[in-house]
Amino acid sequence: MSLLTTIPVPDAFEARTNATFEALMWALSRPGTVQDLPAPGRTGIAEALLDRECRVFCDDPALADRIATFGAALVPLPLADHCFLTLDAGLDRLAQVAVGSALYPDTGATIVAEAGFGTGQRLRLTGPGIETFADLVLGGIAPGFWALRAALCHYPTGFDLFLICGAQVIGLPRSTTIEVL
């Protein structure tokens, strides 16, 4: 490398969003594994993924204000491509989440929600990213959620789920089959 070129260094924003995306990428590639985010909470995910091209639904007013500063439009749930939801109650509105179509599976929404890892409902995952099966214990999610997910997501349509617990994330893509044990 010549003396005239300088070695580029990522600023804090670039380093943080790059690390957040890498965690999300491996979380979705290996459903059920716990990946570490550079910072706790859902704001970092919004920062790494969202901008003026996105339509977002967020049921937490404080987080919604923060997301609006990234440029994303705050829209009603059926129009949103990224949904920041609480899944411990109020599942009736889950049926409104965009699942895309067989023609355009990419229009299925991404849901980001808080959950508790290690306590609660026992689940068995199978599908791409999992060699045989993976067992997972998740809390803070309403009991009917998994049956509702199975009813709403007909592969390749469906929504993709990121569950956050502190600075950790688990990804559950629509391709994963989830059995409640």
Partner: peptide, 21 residues
């Protein structure tokens, strides 16, 4: 630029969620 990367990130995640699509 940052917006190009964000778009690619969103699409790469969707690509993983629906393998081969």
């Amino acid at each position: 630029d940052a917006s190009a990367k964000r778009e690619l990130r969103r699409k790469m995640l969707k690509a993983i969620a629906v393998p081969g699509c």
